[in-house]
């Protein structure tokens, strides 16, 4: 009994694989391909603005992108230029915005 269920499940998996692989391989135009993928992909989180990079060769000041600067250090004098400018972008990229 158990073996026959296992065989049925395996057969179902292979049938599904064949069907899905054929659907994915069908020549379709770009927009219909996107629609088809979207239908099974789930909830879209992001596209354009999920871009992010973390590397650059610039020095870091004390604007941590967290809404303000602390200015108690001698090295900080004149560094309060974060405020009112929307925080400080970091590393040449915007926050992750997974969305």
């Amino acid at each position: 009994m158990k073996n026959s269920i296992n065989a049925l499940l395996l057969s179902a998996a292979l049938t599904g694989l064949v069907g899905g692989t054929m659907a994915a391989a069908q020549p379709v135009n770009h927009s219909s391909a996107k629609t088809r993928v979207s239908a099974v992909a789930g909830f879209r989180l992001a596209s354009q603005d999920q871009d992010k990079t973390k590397h650059s060769c610039k020095g870091k000041n004390d604007c941590k992108g967290q809404g303000g600067c602390k200015s108690s250090a001698n090295g900080c004098k004149g560094k309060n230029d974060c405020k009112g400018k929307g925080g400080c972008a970091t590393d040449g990229s915007k926050p992750p915005s997974v969305i």
Partner: peptide
């Protein structure tokens, strides 16, 4: 960026 006592290469 020029600070009081040094310059930082902030690009």
């Amino acid at each position: 960026t020029r600070y009081e006592k040094y310059i930082l290469d902030t690009h």
